[in-house]
């Protein structure tokens, strides 16, 4: 869906993005992870030509974006930013209707679409349609921002740290909303964040940027396995690396094939080791029972196996 081919961007002496080559497959969520100033936003903004590359090219659907008319290109790509950027003098409905109106949809179709979208992002249309942005909480505003980006049903969504300014609870709510929307609509999403947890929660593929260079890419699991050295290890956090790894492994992989005891806390078969650890801590139990499901015959997960060196 998106291909970066040897893309660089310089600002005077400074190299914000340095020869990045990256492919984002259609229908996947690709998370750009990196510290502040590592060039994530710059790289993303080259997709909808808010930034032009100094060298290299960006292809969307196989076509070089440099050949597209910027405004038309952007109307076909959803764009969500951290500070939301809702137009403060327009009501929520008008904000969401921005792109459909630019595309010349008729009023009735726009109105229907606004209601559908508010529903999709989990806001009551009747309650929120006519509010002004300053009458929304941070989380509600970002839901509206997401709805605005989805308004004309673009196949591609660019999201630049969209949840970073929200409190943890709201952030988790929006993350799961985004996952649901992704499952429902199958959009291709390029998602920028500096938050490792968020990246691991959302990513189908991860791309790690450091000082403008792409230092690692692949699935979360493969990245965590290889992250023994250099910038990736630093970005993930040395101490939490093992913890993050647990999130990428299924709990059933370490289960002993014992008959599950009925008095133990139950863990679903598709849970990760991280969830297993949290359940152990929460229940104060060193063993968990995992019921049989599909090919997995059922078993018991032991604390000792969890912490054993692998």
């Amino acid at each position: 869906m998106i291909r970066f081919e040897g893309v660089s961007r310089r600002y005077g002496e400074q190299v914000a993005v340095d020869r990045v080559t990256l492919e984002v497959p259609r229908g996947s969520i690709c998370v750009l992870l990196g510290e502040s100033g590592s060039g994530k936003s710059t790289l993303m903004r080259m997709v909808n030509r808010l930034v032009e590359p100094s060298a290299g090219r960006v292809l969307v659907d196989g076509r070089d974006v440099a050949g597209a008319e910027p405004e038309a290109l952007r109307r076909g790509i959803g764009y969500v930013i951290q500070s939301v950027g809702l137009f403060p003098h327009w009501r929520v409905g008008d904000n969401i209707a921005t792109v459909p109106r630019l595309l010349g949809w008729d009023a009735a179709r726009v109105a229907r679409r606004v209601d559908v979208l508010l529903d999709l992002v989990g806001l009551d249309a009747a309650l929120f349609r006519d509010r002004f942005p300053h009458e929304l909480s941070g989380g509600q505003a970002q839901r509206v921002g997401l709805a605005r980006a989805l308004a004309a049903d673009p196949p591609l969504l660019l999201m630049d740290e969209p949840f970073s300014a929200l409190d943890p609870g709201t952030r988790r709510g929006l993350q799961s909303a985004l996952r649901e929307i992704h499952a429902e609509t199958g959009k291709t999403i390029l998602f920028v964040t500096h938050d490792v947890e968020e990246a691991l929660t959302l990513a189908d593929t991860l791309a790690v940027l450091d000082q403008g260079r792409l230092v690692a890419q692949g699935s979360s699991a493969s990245l965590l396995q290889e992250a023994e050295k250099g910038p990736v290890r630093r970005i993930f956090g040395k101490e939490s690396l093992a913890f993050h790894r647990l999130a990428t492994l299924p709990a059933s992989s370490l289960a002993r094939p014992e008959d599950a005891r009925q008095d133990l806390p139950m863990l679903p078969a598709d849970a990760s080791l991280k969830q297993a650890l949290m359940l152990m801590l929460a229940e104060g139990s060193a063993c968990l029972a995992i019921p049989a499901e599909g090919a997995f015959p059922g078993g018991t997960l032991h604390w000792a196996d969890l912490v054993a060196p692998r």
């Binding site: 081919e5 040897g6 660089s8 310089r10 005077g12 100094s54 060298a55 290299g56 090219r57």
Partner: peptide, 16 residues
């Protein structure tokens, strides 16, 4: 190997 296309933009020239 992709051909890098060098593009020099007005903004960049001003900054330089």
């Amino acid at each position: 190997e992709p051909q890098p296309v060098a593009v020099l933009h007005a903004t960049e020239r001003r900054e330089a």
